[in-house]
């Protein structure tokens, strides 16, 4: 239960971090709340860790008129507590409250969650739900990807080995966004979760916790009858392929989407 030996580089700027990441086998150390357990089990054996906790330019929180800009080093507990975030994008604070436990949230970072791309994680799914863009910096320079393009599958992203997630831009939703998830114990990863946006008579649903990545589906018009809505959920969720043993999650997904829909409407 101890990691293999590695070379440790503490970066203080994005340039230093990107340079240090050119070494084959190098990995970024942000909050370490997913990476270090994997290293302790020796499932991950990076030859070099590039610690970005000292990169001051990646810890910003900026609320603009139509978007929220967050540095990759913003901690989950900041998402929960920051008054500006709670006011401008309350669904982000609510979802972040469900990540792990307090002592995990004080270290875990937005950029780390994005780069790790756990299909059951709350934040990647919210980025897909809101149509966020993710800024990454590498030896070739900066590029911006949509969340939809960034998340490719199970723990798999469009990030190149020597690229670093530096910032996320979240457009502030025009409609109301609901959030619900099903977990066995508080703090666990979700068995199934859904964000539902209600805008006018339509909107979108984004599911996570099953399948290989978060999936978003637009809905032109929500039926007002709950039974008709159930048919909509059932139709849409079948587009998310799941393994044989996870078939039961379709039922959870339908239930959690309806709860999230009601949450968005301020209903119990």
């Amino acid at each position: 239960m101890k990691p293999v030996a590695f070379d440790y580089v503490a970066a203080t700027t994005v340039e230093e971090a990107v340079n240090a990441l050119r070494e084959p086998g190098a990995k970024v150390l942000a909050g370490g709340q997913s990476l270090v357990p994997l290293m302790n089990f020796r499932l991950s054996r990076p030859s070099r860790l590039v610690d970005i906790n000292g990169v001051a330019s990646m810890a910003h929180i900026e609320v603009r008129e139509r978007e929220l800009i967050l540095g990759a080093l913003v901690r989950h507990q900041q998402l929960v507590e920051d008054p500006e975030i709670r006011r401008s994008l309350p669904v982000l604070s609510r979802a972040a409250q469900h990540i792990g436990h307090w002592a995990i949230r004080t270290r875990g970072t937005l950029g780390g969650s994005v780069a790790h791309a756990d299909p059951a994680a709350e934040l990647p799914a919210l980025l897909v739900a809101l149509g966020a863009t993710i800024a990454v910096v590498g030896p070739e320079g900066t590029r911006e990807l949509t969340a939809e393009a960034f998340f490719e599958g199970f723990y798999t992203t469009a990030l190149a080995p020597s690229e670093l997630v530096t910032q996320v831009k979240l457009p502030l939703p025009q409609g109301a966004v609901g959030f619900k998830e099903v977990v066995r114990r508080p703090g666990d990863f979700a068995l199934a979760g859904a964000y539902v946006e209600r805008l006018g008579s339509g909107g979108a649903v984004t599911w996570f916790g099953f399948g290989d990545r978060p999936r978003r589906f637009s809905v032109r018009e929500w039926p007002s009858d709950p039974e008709d809505r159930r048919h909509v959920w059932v139709e849409l969720v079948r587009n998310v392929p799941v393994e044989e043993r996870d078939q039961y999650k379709y039922e959870l997904a339908v239930a959690v989407a309806e709860e999230s829909y009601r949450d968005a409407g301020g209903e119990e």
């Binding site: 357990p37 302790n40 792990g100």
Partner: peptide
């Protein structure tokens, strides 16, 4: 040693953290 049990919780600058998931160099 995987951040689950909380027995190793300490404060880092006053905030609770897992000391099994933080390297001493950090």
């Amino acid at each position: 040693e995987q951040g689950v049990c909380g027995a190793c919780t300490v404060w880092l600058d006053g905030e609770p953290v897992r000391s099994c998931l933080l390297f001493a160099v950090q």
